[in-house]
Amino acid sequence: MKNPVLESIKLGLILMVVCSVAAGTLGLTYAYTAPIIKAQQDVEIARANQDILKIFGEGELSLSPKEELVDELKEKFPELETIFEITSNGEIIGTAIKMAPKGYGGPIAVAVAINPEGNLVGIKVLDVSKETAGIGTKVMSDEAFLAQFSAKKVSDPFEVKKDVDAISGATISSKAVAKGVREACEIFTKHIKVGK
């Protein structure tokens, strides 16, 4: 192996063999796990939808996503995830807007339930996995914090220190939730209620 060109080719070939074996193994792993991952995600979405319906109460409720509206608004509200129309026996009883405002460690998933009159039915924090354990995660479980949103109107400011009390120690996460709710209300006022 004196010839440097030949040596480079030999090294390249060895590397290619190693990479091919690695790629093959990964392909098999992917083929095996992909359907399981998909099923897990579907379960996750179904559970989140169930949680959203629970804000509106018990009964025969169903939700239908308004995908076109979301696509249209996504540019203006990058933190918007989905908009659902909630119906009970064919009658619209409200709107649920799912937002993903940025918290302390990453996005927090918040669902905001609004009735057709423009009053908040309630909010539900769906995911706080990126927040600091035991601190930021409180926005999901703190009843007093969450209850503040229930009786409000979409026209309220939703600002920490004004009409929303933050959880002590978790100001950033609380502000994020408030921002998510504020934007959801803005979307409702400007783009959903107007159309009716």
Binding site: K10, L11, I14, L15, V18, C19, A22, T25, L26, T29, Y30, T33, I36, I37, Q40, Q41, E44
Partner: peptide
């Protein structure tokens, strides 16, 4: 070969990491 051992190590390590990544995503979301 000594000259390309590091890229080979990295390919091996990265493959196992990807396997772990996909498996955890599937079973412990």
């Amino acid at each position: 070969p000594n000259k390309i051992r590091i890229p080979i190590f990295i390919v091996i390590i990265a493959s196992f990491v990807t396997i772990v990544d996909l498996t955890m995503k599937a079973f412990f979301p």
